[in-house]
Design a protein around this nucleic acid. Structure first.
Lengths: 198, 198
DNA sequence: CGAGTTTTATAACACTGTTGCGATAGAATG
DNA sequence: CATTCTATCGCAACAGTGTTATAAAACTCG
């Protein structure tokens, strides 16, 4: 007896897709509910019935962003040499960030006001971290690296890679300074720092 | 013949002070022009006649934040050992960020919508970087470090320190993971990575 | 064909930054 | 002393935001 549903799962993905497009192409400022709803020929009510509000929509987008990001990192073939794998993860990390800077800023910068990811979404996001941790463990177990908790080593590596990319994408670098020419050597030097001295 | 000015330099600093307070204590969401103006017993017009608008006010706050930050880093006494100085800079970097996280987020994260620092303000902000660069140069010139551009080495170090602190303050760390116990050893390991091998 | 019921679109609310307008307050002039 | 002038400032309107309450729409069942 009710009126037929149009706020279905298909509309949900259309909203999510369009939201991602708006974010990537015009930035977070263009991602307003009225704009989004009108672009998909519905009303702002749809966002509330399908997500629960703008923060919840952003949470879904946040999850999607980390999924893409994690997929790219997990898709890297293993070479057998953990050091080389770590370098490749680092390079891919920056490539992925530069491929869609706005998404990266949603993940790691606070570009959208009044949005903080939910506990579970943030836990899922942490999975992105696992390929690096696995390779570092391999390097530690094979005696290549110093005897330190492999989580600590991986965290330091993630920090550097993330920090350089963040400085780049947030525009915090001094004028004239570029990341690209220093990036790979920075990764390799950092790895060397954890090498066991003989 | 005109009506006496109340939008003077004293009001300017009162606005800036209160804006900093609001930012530190209640976060960027509480920093609205109406709220700010009423807290200082004036009107929103004051912000426009004294600064030019909210982005310009934020620019002044951004400059102030970097000035404080840079002062803390520059105040570090030199020990004569560049390596030890670099470690101290790294530790102070995190201490300063944790002392006022909201200010740090204004500097290095995009917590305020529609704000990007002006060219000149950003250039001034880059001065924060110089103590680290100076110490790295010293280490390179004394033959301690590998023969690489000292700007590249300093950039890598800044990246790691900044990355770890950013992950921490943005809440991007996996649940249960802490920066503190890994921080100093990460800095020292990274420094070791640039050491000349004998 | 009308009543009932669920779902959706519309409009109102409180808030934001920004801008134009009118009130204000004192000095110079008659 | 009253009036006029004028730079200055506070208030209100405007366009926009997320959110919420309300009313219209659209189908089934009696």
């Amino acid at each position: 007896m009710p009126r037929p549903k149009t706020h279905d799962d298909a509309l949900r993905v259309r909203l999510l897709d369009r939201a991602g497009e708006l974010l990537s192409t015009e930035g977070p400022g263009a991602l307003s509910l009225r704009r989004l709803a009108s672009d998909v020929n519905t009303s702002t009510t749809a966002v509330y019935s399908l997500f629960g509000g703008k923060p919840a929509l952003l949470d879904a987008l946040y999850e999607e962003a980390f999924r893409r990001f994690g997929d790219r990192l997990a898709a890297l073939p293993e070479t057998g040499d953990p050091v080389e794998d770590i370098v490749r993860i680092g390079l891919t990390y920056r490539d992925s960030a530069l491929a869609d800077p706005q998404f990266y800023l949603v993940m790691f910068s606070k570009v959208v006001p009044n949005f903080t990811p939910s506990e579970e979404t943030n836990a899922a996001a942490a999975e992105t971290f696992t390929p690096l941790v696995a390779n570092v463990r391999r390097a530690v177990e094979s005696g290549l690296f110093v005897d330190a908790p492999h989580e600590h080593i991986a965290l330091a590596m993630w920090g550097m890679v993330h920090g350089l990319v963040s400085l780049e994408l947030n525009g915090n670098l001094p004028p004239g300074v570029e990341i690209a020419p220093a990036y790979e050597s920075a990764i390799r030097a950092h790895i060397d720092g954890w090498r066991k001295r003989s």
